[in-house]
Amino acid sequence: MVKLVNASDTPIRRHIKIKAEAHPFNPAWEEYFENRLGLQMKESLRGKNKLLFLWYAQEGKCPNCNERITKDTGWNVHYTRRKTDGGKNIVTNLSLLHPNCHRQIHNREKKVAAGSGDTGFMEA
């Protein structure tokens, strides 16, 4: 049997533009790019398989609070080693966290960076 495919049968998927000032290797934008990665993973079969693999590898638990990750609790993708530090977009460098745990980790990292005394200026 042959079926004629109509253009209206194809779902429209809109591309979400990257914010103009965003840069993937700037630590200030790390959380933004992690959220984009999570959305992209939900859209493709390969991405869904990665998410499922991560969930099984973590035994369905958040590594931060050790509570179950479910559809109701939600999740965020997190880079174990930041891209700014040479981390790659591979399964061994990713983890699933609850949204609140993800914010806590990034806030902790910001406090550590702020407390390091590094102003970003070279001393003469």
Rank of each mutant, 00 (worst) to 15 (best):
N35Y: 02
N35M: 13
N89V: 09
G115Y: 03
N107A: 11
T92P: 04
P24M: 05
E67K: 15
T92S: 12
E21S: 14
N76M: 08
K88I: 07
R68Q: 07
I90T: 07
M41D: 06
G117A: 05
R81Y: 12
R36K: 12
L39W: 11
S95G: 06
N64F: 14
G74S: 06
S116T: 12
R108N: 14
A22K: 03
M122G: 01
Y56I: 13
C65Y: 02
A20L: 13
A124M: 10
N6G: 10
G74L: 01
E43P: 00
G87S: 02
L54E: 09
N66Y: 07
S8E: 08
H106E: 12
R13E: 14
Q40N: 15
A7H: 10
R46C: 06
N35V: 05
Y32Q: 10
I105A: 06
V2K: 10
N107R: 09
E109T: 06
V91F: 04
D72V: 13
N66L: 11
L51M: 09
A113G: 07
A113W: 02
K19H: 13
Q40V: 00
H106L: 02
P27V: 00
K71N: 11
K3D: 03
L54A: 03
M1E: 06
V91N: 08
G120E: 03
K88E: 14
R81M: 12
